[in-house]
């Protein structure tokens, strides 16, 4: 195993590089994405400003307007970089029968898919999240705590990417059984957007709902890294607790998708795709 390791990694990284180049080829789409994000952020800004202006107290559920904005802006940026349309591409692979071709290749399909979208993740991170993050930091002039939490943020975001990929992959494989990509994808999108805290910070949710959300993997995608970044009151133990919670979800989600994928693979090979 140890001898094959370098070439193994290189094989997958080549995929990553190719997908990075592919996303660069769509120059206009990058600019449009940045512009679109800007418009979107402006709308969020004014909406919440109006909301807070109408509120009798400046702090609602422990969050000031400032906190909420930083949280939502970064959530939107994260949403853009985590949405790589995996469900669509998997769904089409299944429908067109392309999956059979992929299965004959000497690489694991799930790992293959991950590395193939990793390039997209990296590009989207550099083009959407990073610029947004820098702008937010500059505009708030120290409003975003920049310290030890950045290290935890990076680790936490890696976990987010993995959990998000697993959710997408899982949902993508469901398409194989249902033949319905749009329906499955839209369900995933709205459930993730709402329950992960990407649309509205989880702090605003009623207590009962928050309890339920703790038992779902979605909050570990958005709420955890964003909380690590924005919440100054967190201690070292808090950070570690949150990361451990993410690790738990990473392991569980990988496990679940592996089992589901292996079962589906059998189904595909028996039924001929």
């Amino acid at each position: 195993m140890s001898e094959t390791r370098p070439s193994f990694v290189r094989k997958y990284l080549a995929l990553t590089k190719a997908s990075m180049m592919e996303s660069l080829a769509f120059r206009t789409s990058i600019f449009v994405t940045i512009l679109g994000n800007l418009v979107y952020l402006i709308m969020i800004y004014f909406l919440w400003q109006a909301i807070y202006a109408s509120s009798p107290t400046p702090i609602v559920n422990g969050m000031t307007f400032y906190d909420t904005m930083v949280y939502l802006v970064l959530a939107a940026a994260m949403f853009n970089f985590l949405e790589c349309f995996i469900v669509w591409s998997l769904g089409r692979d299944f429908q067109s029968g392309q999956i059979v071709v992929s299965l004959t290749k000497p690489i694991d399909y799930q790992v293959f898919t991950f590395f193939a979208v990793l390039g997209q993740y990296i590009m989207a991170f550099l083009t959407t999240f990073l610029p947004t993050f820098i702008i937010v930091c500059l505009m708030t002039k120290g409003g975003v705590p920049l310290g030890i939490n950045l290290i935890f943020l990076v680790i936490s975001m890696v976990f987010s990417v993995i959990i998000n990929f697993c959710v997408d992959f899982f949902v993508g494989v469901i398409c194989f059984y249902t033949q319905s990509i749009w329906g499955i994808n839209v369900m995933k999108e709205v459930v993730v957007a709402l329950l992960s805290g990407a649309a509205i910070p989880l702090a605003f949710f009623p207590a009962v709902l928050r309890k339920i959300i703790r038992f779902l993997p979605f909050h570990a995608i958005y709420n955890t890294p964003l909380q690590i970044l924005t919440d100054e009151s967190l201690t070292l133990t808090n950070y570690l607790e949150m990361l451990i919670n993410q690790v738990f979800w990473v392991v569980l989600m990988i496990g679940i998708t592996r089992i589901f994928w292996n079962a589906s693979k059998k189904f595909i090979t028996v039924n001929g795709g």
């Binding site: 990075m20 660069l24 120059r27 990058i30």
Partner: peptide, 9 residues
């Protein structure tokens, strides 16, 4: 290449 793609941007 990757560099070329970035230049194309």
């Amino acid at each position: 290449g990757l560099k070329g793609s970035i230049k194309d941007l």
